[in-house]
Write a protein that binds this DNA or RNA. Structure first.
Lengths: 223, 223
DNA sequence: GCAAAAGTGTTACAGATACACCCATGC
DNA sequence: GCATGGGTGTATCTGTAACACTTTTGC
């Protein structure tokens, strides 16, 4: 390690945070209010500070800008192309996050300083910088993650129905699966248990409600 | 993105490069010649320069310090603990690399400036900084990668025997598998083909030699 | 001819897939 | 009572796991 260090490079963290709302998988984006890319949507994030790890930075950014205090968080990738930011050299570290919509609605502090919106991953708006590339890469990670049912607990900790969770699975993988086979597989996994309640008030027969069996149930988890 | 950028943080890249030699999975380490951690072994790498991506940096470091020009390369993770370097703030980006021992021996330029050595992943020496943590994390990635037989082509492009490749599989996963089942599975994958030659001159019956069917056969690949 | 290591085929089990009818509720 | 969506069981298939003897070479 005898070559020179270089300090003209800034480091930012960016997060692709996913949730499920109304049966759709959505990602949280912010609208940029200044040039360049004014009016475009971007991934939330921040520049790193001296006394912070990358993880600290992203947790703070998510809390300060989005009002979200608890989530599943994991490193995703790095983006270091020389000209990815037209103003100066910035290297980005991308994170992958999962939150459940119920806890967001309960805990989220509305902050008028930032315009944010949840977009379905099937209709992403025009994004600034290389954030569309970063987001698409993270969506691929999401697809891989959710093949393992245990990650669903971050999106649906409690009071979900099997048809709901099957719907998310089918959206993400763009397939239709047999209801009986899906139920067998997820119930055999022993990850979830019935709450005893039913999802009443909708058309048709009420669905049973389930929850993930809780050991270490969420809150800022790192891999 | 309105918080201040901070330029007091250096960025380094580090690589855990693996090969197979004499039936053992090995990683390439360098011995540190200056304090701190003088005499300890560390992962090869370098500080990033202004006109380089992270990938450029690691490719250059591997070529300049190790004389290796061609490999499979992939991002692994980032390490940003405040005090991971006792001298100053340095964030590390870890890469994962695979090379085959034959091409190393053919192409490698010996460079007396650096003391390097291939260590079996079962007997890693005392390492400086947090490099043991980084290496162990990358070994986990290696284990996952090699469950997919197609990655074996970076370690064994040609003229390998099935017992050799089975031995690597067994070492990595610390299991013994049935020879017949292993052969069936890898031959059914249609990834490899017989070269027609045999591995003569050893004890016992000579083994058939195989090669990976080549479409896009190696050379600095990124995922 | 004997020691060493490679090559081979069949059966059993488990996980995944395909498939159709009945049940509980709202209107 | 009918439309809507949820819940259930069985038969087949496919991939994985278990298992022992024969073949080719060096010495």
């Amino acid at each position: 390690m005898n070559s020179q260090r270089n300090c003209d490079i800034a480091i930012e963290t960016l997060i692709s945070m996913f949730t499920v709302e109304d049966g759709e998988i959505k990602v949280l984006l912010m609208r940029k209010k200044t040039e360049p890319y004014k009016g475009y949507w971007i991934l939330p994030g921040d520049f790193i500070k001296n006394d912070e790890t990358l993880e600290d930075t992203i947790i703070d950014a998510v809390y300060d800008k989005l009002g979200i205090a608890s989530m599943y968080l994991e490193q995703a990738g790095s983006y270091s192309a020389i000209d990815r930011n037209p103003e100066s050299r910035v290297i980005a570290f991308s994170f992958f996050g999962l939150v459940d919509i119920v806890s967001i609605k309960l805990k989220r502090v509305e902050n008028s300083e930032y315009e944010t919106n949840w977009f379905s991953i099937d209709s992403i708006p025009k994004m600034g910088y290389d954030h569309d590339i970063i987001l698409n890469k993270t969506i691929d990670i999401l697809k891989n993650k959710l093949n393992d049912y245990s990650f669903l607990k971050y999106l649906f900790p409690s009071d979900f129905t099997l048809p709901e969770i099957q719907n998310v699975y089918e959206q993400l993988n763009r397939v239709k699966v047999d209801r009986r086979n899906f139920r067998k597989k997820i119930l055999n996994s022993e990850l979830i248990e019935s709450t005893g309640d039913k999802n009443e008030g909708f058309m048709g027969r009420p669905a049973n409600l389930y929850r993930f069996k809780s050991e270490s149930n969420s809150v800022s988890t790192f891999s």
